[in-house]
Design a protein around this nucleic acid. Structure first.
Lengths: 237, 237
DNA sequence: TATTGCATTATGTCTAAACTTAATTATTCT
DNA sequence: AGAATAATTAAGTTTAGACATAATGCAATA
């Protein structure tokens, strides 16, 4: 088509998704109800079916629609609530807050991995990994304390890296991209070591982030990050 | 085309995404490096450009690629780490663990909203909202304590609902779909009330989840959920 | 009656071609 | 040289058409 309407300012698929979302929110299409099929909607909205498909996929990903072949598309009864968190790179986070970033390595040594950690990443207990402990600072205020185990087989040259001069996370991000990652949040009372390194009272509630990464050759690293009190992890809008 | 190859078992776009991912992970394409453009890749992979586009969009969403019009596609230097969490419906979570779900309303009254909460959801302080406090149990063990404020204007009939017989979250999910949601995790030491209701010692570290939702007419609800100790929120596979 | 097989249907995916838009590069003008 | 302008390029989006696939329901069969 060479001639067509003035042209919307945002992509058509987005507009369609927005309109469908509105109809759901305003109860024009009720929970569990079947909505018109893609071909019909394509006609109603004056778009190609592929465009409608894209819009509906979007809403299905959001958890607002349930779609099944042959059965059609219906409004989700229990909209799944998904939240996307962007795991910040500590340095960027500190610097974007206008503070100066620094970090200090508390310990770096080769050591047999404890059972609890070995099972978490699927390695036999007792394997020799690099054990690294470091604190990240913003303007000399402790921000995070990380306790990390690194698989020396996961990247060439890992054995000889001195993480005192080189942030472990950044080195790994650049030198050992991962295929799969697991992330978990929990809360713990600061133990003696957390308390000392983060300079908070023992027992202080801390947000704990556990992250493990793998590539096709096996586990790369697993880390427990203890965040300073008051740290909030929120859906970046 | 009526004749073509036996056909891959998984979608072509996925295969292409996988192959590109592999090339990045194996350093064939280095960080920051420009990769061939869509047209070239379409030829290499024997696919249409739209298919390659879909694959690359996928990887860009994952944070592995940076794409800009005209400038081309390059391997991300700092792969953004995104994590998708599925916020569980408490009842389902309890029941899927083989426990019996129940909940108890501690208080339900109309009350002027405190400043801190009003600003969080963008309402003038002092507005009269429904204030609800409830505990969720699994097999009589306290699971979560929720402290919720509900905007009575956000759904018809909200004024007359008795949440003793009707889980607030589920009622809202069904009767007041939201357009936008904010979710945040943090850690807090249990205060006296948390401790009493969750039956844990005062000071116990708790994972706290703050969630607020809005539709086009304004805020619907905001809630602070205190999870029992040991609760872990992880990227659900 | 229970089972198998087939037609139907709605979504899933792909293709080829076109047009749109943002950003870069080259060119022209001052 | 520097600024304004035009050309070019690569991604972004849409379209129309086709075929693939998974459910569903119906019909024929054992």
């Amino acid at each position: 088509m060479t001639d067509h309407q003035p042209g919307p300012t945002s992509p058509k698929a987005q507009l369609i998704a927005g309109e469908v979302r509105r109809r759901i929110v305003e109860r024009e299409w009720q929970q569990g109800e079947r909505i018109p099929d893609e071909a019909d909607l394509a006609v109603t909205f004056g778009a190609a079916r592929a465009t409608v498909n894209k819009a509906l996929q979007l809403l299905a990903d959001e958890g607002l629609l349930d779609r099944r072949r042959r059965a059609g598309t219906r409004v989700a009864v229990n909209p799944v609530r998904k939240a996307v968190f962007t795991i910040p790179i500590i340095r960027e986070q500190v610097e974007s807050a206008g503070m100066e970033y620094s970090h200090r390595v508390i310990a770096q040594r080769r050591s047999p991995v404890p059972e609890a950690i070995a099972t978490r990443i699927g390695l036999p207990a007792g394997r020799i990994l690099i054990h690294l402990r470091a604190v990240h600072y913003g303007n000399d205020r402790a921000f995070q304390f990380e306790d990390r185990w690194i698989n020396p087989d996961s990247a060439p040259g890992l054995d000889t890296v001195d993480f005192r001069h080189q942030n472990a996370n950044e080195w790994l991000v650049r030198n050992a991209p991962y295929l799969r990652a697991d992330i978990a949040f929990s809360a713990e009372n600061a133990d003696r070591r957390d308390a000392r390194l983060l300079r908070v009272p023992k027992g202080q509630a801390l947000l704990i982030l556990h992250r493990s990464t793998w590539n096709d050759a096996g586990p790369i690293t697993t880390v427990r990050i203890a965040c300073h009190p008051g740290y909030v992890m929120s859906t970046a809008g």
